[in-house]
Design a protein around this nucleic acid. Structure first.
Lengths: 240, 240
DNA sequence: TTCGATCAGCTTGCATGTAATATGTTGTAA
DNA sequence: TTACAACATATTACATGCAAGCTGATCGAA
């Protein structure tokens, strides 16, 4: 279980703090660390085989991203997913990502545009196959690519944690709404093709559709949960 | 020089990390740490009389805010002020703050509305007196109050570092454009009064004016610097 | 005098030890 | 049996020490 890190290669490039951040973020986003659960520094250290100092600094960043809450002498709370806050995240993301998508459509070079087209095909394919992890990985690639192409460091820095939160929502909602993956995939593809074509207006409209779709899913979950609660009053319908 | 911290009172309320963050942020924003200058962890520790661990964690946050850059074995670079990035910050701030201001106008309670009116009077007064520090302090209060009243944790978290950067720009530009303080003060006051009146539309319009004003100042600085450079080719017109 | 190499010094990255404190447990008394 | 108090334990907050690496200085040779 130890020594899962290859010494002398990537270690020299990235600091342990960055590595810890990436790894823990991934664990939180993919729900390997369940929302609402509590972990300890030591557990993370042992799990990642990284010292306490880098893990601690990574947690500072994750805390600011809104992914965890460090409770002084209790442990690290993986933030529960709350509908209200999810909607607020989508609201802010809507504002900033509109800017980013428009800029990407305007500023991308030919190589990037080709990548967008490629990603569009890939993500539709993954959606058709209902290959969830592949889909989410491609979504992540899309987010990263768009943020890079926008050439807007400030917006890029702002959008990153919002994307992380949104990706976590994706993993979370997936358990209920596996059916929406195809629709979502098309929405993604439409955005990417519009960006590739340099069509700012369409890109913006398609982004609007995607976020509205996501919003409805989040609201749908809410309703479904309420419905469940009213049907079976015992309340054991919730997962741990 | 030591023990300037009172033990047993504020110490128990805030962690040293938070305290270090607040203090260093204030130093950067008020230009007490000059843009482009390099400081060391040790210097900060000695200056604040706080250990290295809290200072280090504060620096992680400041790094993410875009206020400093930690260069691995060189020191901590207080980020230089660049026009392009300043404009980008204003651009994103424009998007998010529009949301915040509208919500504040809609959701503020009577106490808050009273505060806004009070702040409006105060800031106009400070602007009339050309009292910079007072003005900037009131601006800070305004930012904080607006963010609170908006009742939008996500937007609040996003806007905080943008406000910090903008405040730093304010301190920076003040050296050149002392004349614009009155105009800026009026713009601020107009926003606050619109919020107090619950007039979302006007609040938004006035915010637009304020940010456009700020943008012009930033661009003006740019032009003036270029002009200076072309007039006196020796280049000693720059400050250290 | 100038160029180059070696070395001493600072600086951050990271590990680890210590302290404070919240919490659950256990034992005791009513 | 229950309530309460004392204690053991687990956890983060913070201090500190060591190591790695970059820089600039200093000394030597051409």
């Amino acid at each position: 279980m130890k020594k899962n890190r290859v010494s002398g290669n990537e270690d020299a490039l990235r600091s342990l703090t960055d590595e810890a951040y990436r790894l823990i973020e991934e664990m939180v986003v993919t729900l390997r660390l369940a929302p609402g659960s509590v972990v300890t520094e030591q557990a993370l250290c042992k799990d990642l085989d990284i010292g306490r100092t880098p893990v601690r600094e990574a947690l500072v960043r994750l805390k600011q991203d809104g992914l965890v809450v460090v409770v002084p002498r209790r442990g690290i709370l993986v933030r529960p997913i709350e509908t209200t806050e999810s909607l607020m995240t989508l609201e802010v993301r809507h504002l900033v990502e509109t800017l980013i998508v428009e800029r990407a459509a305007r500023l991308s070079n030919d190589v990037d545009r080709h990548r967008f087209r490629h990603l569009a095909d890939k993500i539709e394919e993954a959606a058709k196959d209902k290959a969830f992890v592949r889909f989410m990985r491609l979504d992540h690639s899309f987010n990263t690519l768009v943020a890079e192409c926008a050439q807007h460091p400030v917006a890029q820095k702002v959008i990153a944690p919002l994307h992380a939160v949104s990706r976590r929502l994706g993993f979370y909602y997936a358990q209920w709404y596996a059916g929406s993956i195809e629709e979502t995939g098309h929405a993604h593809a439409n955005i990417m093709r519009a960006i590739a074509a340099g069509d700012e207006v369409t890109a913006r409209q398609e982004l609007e559709k995607l976020l509205e779709l996501t919003r409805k899913i989040a609201l749908g979950i809410e309703e479904e949960l309420l419905e469940d609660a009213s049907h079976t009053e015992s309340g054991d319908g919730r997962k741990s």
